[in-house]
Design a binder for these strands. Structure first.
Lengths: 239, 239
DNA sequence: CCGATAGGGAACGGATGCGTTCCCTATCAG
DNA sequence: CTGATAGGGAACGCATCCGTTCCCTATCGG
């Protein structure tokens, strides 16, 4: 660790490993309460998930493994262990590691991404404030395990056509479009100069986040986001 | 394979016998003693490199493999094959795959990076033009095999302390500093507003490149760089 | 309560890659 | 020319992981 005063969510303790980590994981469901329970357990927790519930747990475990160990480090066995299931149950559903990862990734990204793309802003909101909102949401997303998973896949997508495509379609494009829509809206409202409607804008914003959050692992505070927005983004686009 | 016009040393022909090449590799050059006639071969090419020459060839092959196959896909055997040597010769020098990669990467990055960081600009050059020059050089670097190698390492550096550090120190920081120096110079010259001296600026520029070049694999033309610079970067920083 | 279904666990054969070792040979110094 | 040194090639043992198979058992519908 060390190196810099990062306020990362966590990472780091690879050793602590299985000290129960179904913490956030969001999405899936709960059922929660202790794991295992194979034996001795008297608590009435179902120890064997089935069907869709199991599938979600596997996808979820897959993304978590991806975030933690990367694509190269991810093994079907590790996913199975984390999802508390067996390899056979995974192979029953996905023919290869590649398809499991791809499916887990896309099914995970389609949720939050759609929220952003379809979002509408009421007329009292300035472009500046709407952008701030967007920046904040994107940064929150990238700070989560999904962000680490994304980062792990960047290198891999260099070599895998399918990954590249899914990456762009499911993640980048919707976000880019959300920013472009906001710019368009700003132009209509007279807050943004017409020439600012340019792919470069979402790319710079996205790039900044990739750099800061994914590579440097810093969490930008809301005031920091405002500072960036007011200091550098708005001056570059406003009319 | 395929994908883009990289100018990597070579690769590909693992099958073909040893049609030896010691093409560029510089430095070497025949060491007098013109007498070859070593074996039956009529081509008088030295077939066995030694010492520093061999070491360079190995590092070079390592980076090329990294760019092509990623860290996970890189094997000592593949590096050896590309460098036309044996595994033993590699293990004689580097104890593990990790150290080989790290050493190859840093020794490769320290060259071009230093050029940027130490660069000075004569007084007739505007900040805008100097930035354009810098942008151009960085983009050229990232478009080469070194860029792909970098991208391949991004995911890995998430899990490896040493990689992260080397990455930041050897690559990011010098570039960031080069931009900051340019901003400082611009402030002195009255071309840049004082509040623009901010980490965000190099981060946005770097992020844009990561996004465009590494992720999207597009080559920004010089006019395109000028458009970006004049349209969005300068407006954000000028006084 | 019981039988059908689906999940869990463990072991397998096969492949791959690491890091080592051994031996032969190209290269270089003298 | 010759002996010392260093490189090349191939095989080995070891470990890991893939994808499969087999068998037992938890769960659920009826």
């Amino acid at each position: 660790m060390t190196s810099a005063p990062l306020n990362i969510a966590d990472t780091s303790d690879n050793t602590a490993a299985n000290a129960h980590r179904d913490d956030d994981q969001s999405a899936s469901e709960l059922t929660s309460s202790g794991q295992e329970g194979a034996t001795a357990g008297e608590e009435g927790v179902r120890s064997r998930k089935r069907g869709a519930e199991l599938e979600d747990a596997i996808r979820c475990a897959c993304v978590a493994e991806l975030a933690e160990s990367g694509y190269g480090g991810l093994t079907i066995e590790s996913v199975a262990a984390r999802a508390q299931t067996g390899k056979a149950s995974i192979y029953r559903r996905w023919p290869t590691k590649q398809e499991l990862v791809l499916d887990s990734l896309t099914s995970m990204m389609s949720g939050p991404v759609m929220r952003l793309a379809d979002r509408t802003y009421d007329d009292t909101m300035t472009t500046r404030d709407a952008l701030l909102e967007l920046l904040f949401e994107v940064s929150e997303f990238m700070l989560g395990p999904e962000g680490d998973a994304m980062r792990s896949m960047m290198g891999e997508s260099l070599r895998d056509e399918t990954f590249t495509l899914s990456f762009r379609c499911d993640f980048f494009d919707p976000r880019k479009q959300a920013v472009l829509d906001l710019l368009q809206r700003g132009i209509r409202r007279g807050e943004v100069r017409t020439t600012a409607l340019d792919d470069v804008v979402p790319e710079m914003i996205g790039g900044l986040f990739i750099h800061r959050i994914l590579l440097l692992r810093q969490r930008p505070s809301r005031p920091e986001l405002e500072r960036i927005l007011d200091g550098f983004i708005m001056p570059a686009i406003q009319s």
